[in-house]
Every structure is written in structure tokens, then in C-alpha cells.
Simulated scan of single mutants.
Amino acid sequence: MLTKEEIQHKIDYEIIVDCYDETEVSMGWYYFFEENLEFPFKATVPLRKKDGSTEIKVVKVVALASDEEGITDNDFELEIENGEYLMDVSYSELTNIKASAQTREAFQIWDFWVK
């Protein structure tokens, strides 16, 4: 696990360096995730059923959602595979993430940023 100082240094000098507006910050995070998330990995996510109820499912997270503008100040989208279906879900919906150390570190940095 990274220290708060290490995380802040990565944010300031690797992710949002030279960013002057929200669009540039969003793009900085997108490219950081593109370089640091290792796919696929498993996680659980609540999926809504046709009857309106939800069911917690183990899914395979296979990609960062394709739109770099989809990263906001507090969330971003990932593409998941559930059986034969592909869909985008918010990172904030994922729990029990089973991923590489590099991917977990990237999420640690993001979680620090949004708090």
C-alpha cells in the first residue's frame, strides 16, 4: 500500500500534471487507468433484473469504458462481462475486487482522490 504522500505525489506529478480544466483532468485519469489497470479481473456487482430486484453477481471486468470523457470527479465506467453479455458499470458499484497489485494500487490512488 502506498502512503498518502506517495499517492499525492503520483496524482500531482503523473496524473493531473499540467491539467488546467476538468476535461484535461478527466483525460489524465483516463490515460492513467489505461496504462495501469490490468484486465481481466473479477469483482462483484449488483445487477438489476427485469422484475426490478437486484442480484449480486461475480463478473469479469474486461476493459475501461471506451469514452475518456466518462471519468468524472467521483466515478468512472468499466466494461464487465456477465455470461454472454457485455455492459458498462460504475467503478463505485464494484466490490470484492480480485485484481493484480498494480490494478489495486491504481484504485487506491483513485479512492484517495475522490475522498
Rank of each mutant, 00 (worst) to 15 (best):
L37R: 01
L86F: 12
T72L: 12
V59C: 00
Y91R: 08
I80T: 02
K49V: 01
K42M: 12
Q8Y: 06
E77Y: 11
E68S: 12
L37F: 15
F39M: 04
N36R: 15
T23V: 12
K10T: 09
N74I: 03
L78H: 00
D18Y: 10
T103Q: 08
S90Q: 09
S26M: 07
A106R: 03
G70S: 15
I15N: 01
S100I: 09
Y85D: 15
F76Q: 00
E81W: 05
C19V: 07
Y13S: 08
A63D: 06
S92P: 00
T72W: 08
F33M: 02
S53Q: 14
L94H: 01
V17D: 14
V61K: 02
K50P: 05
G28N: 03
K57S: 01
D12A: 09
M87P: 01
T103R: 03
I16W: 02
S53R: 14
D67I: 03
F41A: 05
T23E: 13
M87A: 14
F107G: 04
F41L: 13
V89E: 06
A106W: 06
Q108G: 05
S92H: 11
R48N: 09
A65T: 03
T44E: 07
T72N: 09
F32V: 03
V25Q: 08
L37S: 03
I97Q: 02
E38C: 05
N96Q: 09
S100D: 10
G28C: 04
F76T: 00
F112W: 15
F107N: 06
N96L: 05
E68W: 07
I109D: 02
V45E: 01
W110R: 00
I16R: 09
V59M: 00
Y85W: 10
Y13N: 15
E68A: 10
A43C: 06
I7L: 09
K49Y: 02
V25W: 05
T3N: 10
I109F: 07
K50A: 11
L47C: 09
V62F: 05
E34L: 11
S66A: 14
I15K: 03
E24H: 08
